[in-house]
Design a binder for these strands. Structure first.
Length: 872
RNA sequence: GCGGACGUGGCGGAACUGGUAGACGCACAGGACUUAAAAUCCUGAGUUCGAAAGAGCGUGUGGGUUCGAGUCCCACCGUCCGCACCA
């Protein structure tokens, strides 16, 4: 009896309900089997899920379901990264409260995620904007403050003029705010910081332990931390030229070996020496002002021409008291790296060379590159920064650059200026402390109080939480907390006098730096339940977008360590995510109307194929242009709504398509044809299982004593597919797993019309294996098929079948036969055949004899079970 | 500029530690079923020459190592990504 077409949308709801009723995916800390914590980066509740979420969560779900089937105690939670700017902007636009907007979005998106049939433990759901979450974050902040890991300082910060808030360095991309896209300005403000730099070395070194992270991400983090080994070198200033109170200038260099190539010194416009000199030189003061103005936008800095101003100050070369070097103020020297002062060796550094040429300063080659001729070697317009042999460098001459570094360092360390050594070794980092103050409402309030008498005082733990006021106003720009009439007024916890609350809130990246810890015990009364955290952490497989390679992933690595060091129960664990996978984006073609407006894919009709493809705007009937394939985005309207796809095709179809074809780390192009293909496959599986259930052996029948060769062959195919698919899911090679399932399905369809001894039983076994192979990817269809096969258990609860090792190897193997490296034929032979037998069989092949043309055989190479190459 | 990744049919891609290149999917062509369409099933296909058997060429380009290279080495070209005055 052939059944109806599989009605995915209807049946999916049924099975989702069945899982929910059975509590299938609720994780228990006391569960059996080894633990496995699978996590996808939690979403920002923007309003609706998009295809990128579908892909991300489909991947995580396949992995989680597979691990469950393999007997692991799986934790697979979901929550909401719910604080942040869009809620506040929406509040301004719609005259509502950010919380109202956010919670409505969470409801909508939760419904959407549920329609995907994800194996999530919703009992652990959390939202970072919920006071039950952020009160613990405030407690953590206080602990970090106690440890000196959170502190306040005045510094130049990135100011986003559109969002009216400060941004961390990591959140400035190409000189623009990561969210608003506005050109970022530099402002001097007093802000809260986390001391991530205390972990520079550890964060860098431990990257080496993250062998299940993408190399690319580790490299990006290593570059961001930016460790360099160099020296601090103090230069005496010529007293006749130095401003009062300044007798020396300390610089940072990674190339003390090139000291004899010194041409000039350069200091930042904000360097104390520059400020002192500017007091006596109005032109210099004007130059410094100009530099600062240029520095207002990061984008300007990148294109600005190198400029300098000779301060008239002369510095004395550390190795030659008669050698004077000019000191410039230069617009390219940064005050907050090293000491804000450099010595320049133009022959070895392009930027210094450009500057030297511009201001007609000396250029002395000091490194002779390997293979260059000392007599003819000159520096033109290109600096030479590689290794080589030292020249024009007195006591360093003839040494390699590496040896010269050591020699110069030794001499600088032993020589003195005044009483202290002339130089000392110093490791520098590019990484800066993490500025977390945001002048916005919709974030976690920083639990601090400003008292005129006592200074900055932490809110006592017993007074937590510091809750956001509900009655804030969003009608004008600026910080609603700051202008709230009463909220910031409080009593100083120390002296009791009237004081003022801190009105800055925390960067939302703080929220996401520990949510994975909170998932292990979301209802604990303390921020961390040590027992649960020790059991579940670290996350065994983390999946998310590459865009967080630095931001979220570096912050989390820091925060997890800081929490441990502040006594929050995770001290024995240093890395939060033992394996990381970064998935590619979902892309789609773009369409434009005649007037140049972007069109949704649903607004155009496509015709023809290949080069001849055309698009018509449905509403107007006019021709539309087919544009390039881009990441799905609202601005380009190349969006496909997951709701539409799931309602029409079902979640399984959408999931299957997201996992097919493209390797998961690469971008995938969403196409209508691709979805149709996936939809066809869903029906094909259903028909196949339906037919086998009708004709095949009864549920639970034992294997017949004797099987035909067809039946054995089918069993081999099934068990090989089982083995290979498991390995590919394990290594997240979903596209290959999908291809193997297709191949297996083709073999199964091919065997269906045949009839021989034991074949019905083998068909049934293969069908059951097939259902379990698709279960992680198309879980609803798997349940439907499982039930059709006569079971009243849930497929989701079935253990992953075990492949029979005896079926994984063939008795006879096909070997390619080459003559002089060219494939001429192939031969099928017993797997256990000896090399002699293989050689004999190969030489007997007609194609081989023909290719040899009677030439004598020089040698024969036999690779068992693979290839034989006859060399003549 | 510095650092990194990648380059395979019409398209997405597969190919374990060097061993039958193009699995699987999409698109395509031919056929079956049907009054017809949809759905489904079967067959074909890297390319050139050939009716076929078969042969030549073929993984960005040029060289090299090897019995054998998509895979290893060198140089170059192209695409993409990250960082970017970091001393």
């Amino acid at each position: 009896m052939a059944s109806e077409r599989y009605n995915a949308p209807a049946r999916e709801k049924h099975w989702q309900q069945a899982w929910e009723n059975a509590g299938t995916f609720t994780a228990k800390t006391s569960g059996s089997g080894p633990k496995c914590y699978v996590l996808e980066m939690f979403p920002y509740p923007s309003g609706r899920i998009h295809m990128g979420h579908v892909r991300n969560y489909a991947m995580g779900d396949v992995f989680a379901r597979y691990k469950r089937a393999k007997g692991f105690n799986v934790l697979h939670p979901m929550g909401w990264d719910a604080f942040g700017m869009p809620a506040e902007n929406a509040a301004i636009e719609r005259k509502t409260h950010p919380g109202t907007w956010t919670y409505a979005n969470i409801d909508a998106m939760k419904r959407q995620l549920k329609s995907m049939g994800l194996s999530l433990d919703w009992s652990r759901e959390l939202a970072t904007c919920n006071v039950d979450y952020y009160k613990h974050q405030q407690a953590i902040f206080l602990k970090l403050f106690d440890k000196g890991l959170a502190y306040r300082k005045s510094s130049k910060v990135n100011w986003d003029p559109v969002d009216h808030t400060v941004l961390a360095n990591e959140q400035v991309i190409d000189g623009r705010g990561w969210r608003s896209g506005a050109l970022v300005e530099q402002r001097e403000l007093t802000q809260w910081f986390f001391k991530i730099t205390a972990y520079s070395d550890e964060l860098l070194n431990d990257l080496g332990t993250l062998d299940k992270w993408p190399e690319k991400v580790r490299l990006m983090q290593a570059n961001w931390i930016g460790r360099s080994e160099g020296m601090l070198v103090r230069w005496a200033l010529d007293a006749r030229t130095a401003p009062p109170g300044h007798s020396e200038l300390e610089i940072y260099t990674t190339r003390p070996d090139t000291l004899f190539g010194a041409s000039f010194m350069a200091i930042a416009p904000d360097h104390p020496l520059a400020k002192a000199a500017a007091e006596q030189d109005p032109k210099l003061a004007a130059f410094c002002d100009e530099c600062r103005r240029m520095g207002t936008s990061v984008a300007d800095v990148e294109t600005a021409e190198k400029q300098g101003y000779d301060t008239g100050i002369r510095a004395v070369h550390p190795f030659d008291k008669d050698w004077r070097v000019r000191v410039y103020v230069a617009n390219f020297v940064l005050m907050d790296y090293g000491t804000g002062a450099i010595f320049a060796c133009p022959s070895g550094d392009q930027r210094d060379l450009d500057f030297a040429r511009k201001y007609k300063l000396p250029v002395t080659p000091v490194v002779l590159p390997l293979g260059a001729d000392a007599k003819t070697f000159v520096i033109g317009d290109t600096a030479v920064d590689g290794d080589g042999t030292m020249i024009n460098s007195r006591f360093l001459d003839g040494l390699t650059t590496t040896a010269a570094f050591e020699e110069a360092a030794k001499r600088l360390e032993t020589a003195t200026l005044g009483k202290a050594p002339l130089g000392q070794r110093k490791v520098n980092y590019r990484l800066r402390d993490w500025g977390i103050s945001r002048q916005r409402y919709w974030g976690c309030p920083i639990p601090m109080i400003h008292c005129e008498v006592c200074g900055v005082v932490p809110v006592p733990a017993k007074d937590l939480p510091v809750q956001l006021p509900e009655d804030a106003t969003f009608d004008k720009p600026g910080n609603p907390l700051d202008r709230h009439p009463t909220w910031k007024q409080c009593a100083c916890p120390q002296c009791g006098k009237p004081a003022r609350r801190e009105t800055d809130t925390m960067d939302t990246f703080v929220d996401s730096s520990w949510y994975y810890v909170r998932f292990t015990a979301p209802d604990a009364t303390t921020p961390v339940d040590t027992k649960a955290a020790d059991y579940w952490l670290p996350v065994d497989q983390y999946i998310g977008g590459i865009e967080h390679a630095i931001l979220h992933l570096l912050y989390s690595r820091f925060f997890y360590r800081a929490m441990g060091d502040a006594g929050l129960g995770t001290k024995n664990l240093r890395e939060p995510f033992s394996a990381l996978f970064t998935q590619g984006m979902v892309t789609h073609e773009t369409y434009k109307s005649e007037s140049g407006a972007w069109l949704l894919p649903t607004e155009v009709e496509l015709k023809g194929e290949g080069e001849a493809r055309t698009a018509i705007e449905i509403a107007s009937g006019n021709a539309a242009t087919i544009g390039s394939v881009e990441k799905m985005s609202k601005s380009k309207k190349n969006l496909v709504d997951p709701d539409d796809i799931i309602a029409h095709w079902g979640a399984d179809c959408a999931r299957w398509f997201m996992l097919s074809d493209s390797p998961p780390e690469r971008d995938v192009i969403w196409t209508e044809a691709g979805v149709q293909g996936a939809g066809r496959f869903v029906q094909r599986i259903w028909r196949l299982v339906d037919e086998i259930a009708d004709k095949g052996a009864p549920t639970g029948a034992a294997m017949p004593a004797s099987l035909s060769s067809d039946a054995t062959e089918l069993r081999r195919t099934a068990h090989k597919a089982l083995d290979a698919t498991g390995r590919n899911i394990e290594s997240l090679r979903f596209n290959v797993a999908v291809a193997q399932i297709y191949e297996f399905t083709n073999a199964l369809s091919g065997a269906l019309p045949k009839s021989s001894e034991g074949l019905d039983w083998a068909l049934r076994e293969a069908a059951e294996i097939l259902v379990q192979l698709i279960a992680p990817m198309m879980p609803h269809l798997a349940e439907e098929c499982w039930a059709r096969l006569g079971y009243n258990t849930l497929a989701a609860n079935q253990p992953w079948p075990k492949a029979d090792p005896a079926l994984l190897v063939d008795d006879r193997v096909t070997i390619a036969v080459q003559v002089n490296g060219k494939r001429r034929d192939e031969l099928t032979i017993e797997r256990t055949a000896s090399n002699q037998e293989i050689e004999a069989a190969a030489l007997g092949l007609e194609a081989v004899v023909r290719a040899l043309e009677g030439k004598p055989v020089k040698k024969i190479i036999v690779v068992p079970q693979r290839i034989v190459n006859v060399v003549a």
